[in-house]
């Protein structure tokens, strides 16, 4: 089986004045189609840097990133935008919805610029918000807002769904509800999904768990069985 995304020997060094900080050190990882990967790591482990590079927001200092055979390491700004537009779905910790648009319109914002999107209302129904479509973000709870964000991310049928601490701003029950939606999307649509978290308990729902420590891959293991989010607790 060929991976859809390949990270080979990747390092990232940030220069901050005279100090240079190494965020990633010689990381190599392959991601396969339909996988749900949980990327674990403490604060400063380099997980966000890795997500940013995979998501086409940043470029590595050394090493290569290959998506479906094409090298993104030397991509231009425009190519990266196109990559994000076509292939990546983002879910942010703080939802980042457009406050002046309704739930439906927030999703349409993405479907309007995608080639073969699912209908925006269908995406919202998928995350269980069929009856809240015409609400503005200020009229939705945090969990609902995050589900709108997930609908927005998956509506374009991305090949890779990147979730950055999706439950970070949510309470326990709501967080679980959101994880269920992510799991459902992965299962029903077969979208390769990468969830970044510092919450070890979430690892149970993954096909594969990658642990980063000080910018290096400390562990890369497969779960023998995937737990349903409802079975998780923390």
């Amino acid at each position: 089986m060929t991976p859809i995304l390949q990270v080979v020997g990747m390092s990232k060094v940030y220069r901050m004045g005279d100090v240079s900080v190494t965020a990633l050190r010689n990381v190599s990882l392959d991601f396969f189609g339909g996988e749900l990967v949980v990327l674990l790591g403490a604060s400063g482990s380099g997980k966000s840097t890795l997500l940013n590079i995979i998501g086409g927001l940043d470029l590595p200092t050394t090493g290569t990133l290959t998506f479906r055979g094409s090298d993104l390491t030397s991509a231009t700004e425009q190519q990266l935008t196109a990559y994000r537009r076509r292939s990546i779905g983002f879910v942010f910790q703080f939802y980042n919805l457009i406050s002046s648009l309704t739930a439906l319109e927030n999703v349409q914002l993405v479907t309007d610029i995608s080639e073969q999107p699912m209908p925006a209302d269908e995406a919202l129904r998928l995350v269980g918000l069929g009856d809240r479509m015409n609400h503005f973000p200020a009229q939705l709870s945090g969990g609902e807002q995050q589900r709108v964000a997930i609908a927005r991310a998956v509506a374009k049928r991305p090949e890779l769904l990147l979730c950055d601490e999706p439950t970070g701003a949510l309470d326990y029950l709501t967080g679980k509800l959101v994880l269920e939606v992510i799991e459902k999307v992965n299962r029903e649509l077969g979208t390769t999904t990468l969830v970044i978290t510092h919450n070890v308990s979430i690892a149970g729902m993954a096909d594969r768990v990658v642990t980063l420590r000080s910018g290096e891959v400390a562990e890369d293991r497969r779960n023998s069985t995937r737990l349903s989010p409802s079975e998780l607790s923390w």
Binding site: T81, R84, F90, I98, I113, R152
Partner: peptide, 16 residues
Amino acid sequence: ARELSSLRVLGLTKAE
């Protein structure tokens, strides 16, 4: 800025 950056991350171009 935040909204616009989010939109950029979601794949909207600078022109958009």
